[in-house]
């Protein structure tokens, strides 16, 4: 099957099998390996990407469903080499331990701030509820997101 999609503002036209998953399309066909494969059953959120303005688990999306979609992966959030404010805040607050959850966590945080620039701590925790950090570094992650929100005011 042929699909057309936009990933990080770049257009792609690809011939794919109908059973290909979006996460594999991004990693294997486009070479964007920042999107991680964790549980592969939609529980951990490591494969989170933003699809048409909403976060999704790319391990549960068939690539054909992304036909015509606009997708943002972790590779697309920095601006000409300048880190996204959320990425910068993650660095400053030591919010990265092993790093495997980080791409998905950052995208969930960016998506939150896109829709709600002034979140409460509860809203931050709610927004990252679908991203599991097995190093359990949630406190720093929440602080980083809060600080990114504060700085953008």
């Amino acid at each position: 099957m042929k699909i057309n999609l936009t990933v990080n503002h770049k257009n792609y036209s690809l011939q794919i099998n109908s059973d290909l998953l979006l996460v594999d399309l991004l990693r294997d066909h486009i070479g964007l390996t920042g999107t991680k494969k964790g549980c592969e059953i939609g529980e951990c959120g490591a494969c989170t990407v933003i699809m048409n303005g909403k976060t999704v688990n790319s391990c549960l999306v068939l690539a054909v469903q992304a036909d015509g979609a606009e997708i943002t992966t972790i590779e697309g959030v920095a601006n000409n080499g300048d880190l996204h404010p959320v990425q910068q805040a993650f660095l400053e607050h030591d919010a990265v331990h092993c790093g495997f959850c980080t791409p998905g966590m950052v995208l969930s945080a960016i998506n939150l701030l896109n829709h709600n620039p002034n979140p409460t701590e509860f809203e931050i925790r709610e927004a990252i509820a679908g991203n599991l950090c097995r190093c359990t570094g949630y406190q720093q992650i929440v602080e980083a997101i809060q600080s990114a929100a504060d700085k953008s005011k």
Partner: peptide, 9 residues
């Protein structure tokens, strides 16, 4: 229900 990502899907 589920997580934000799953509720979006």
């Amino acid at each position: 229900i589920a997580s934000p990502q799953l509720r979006n899907m």
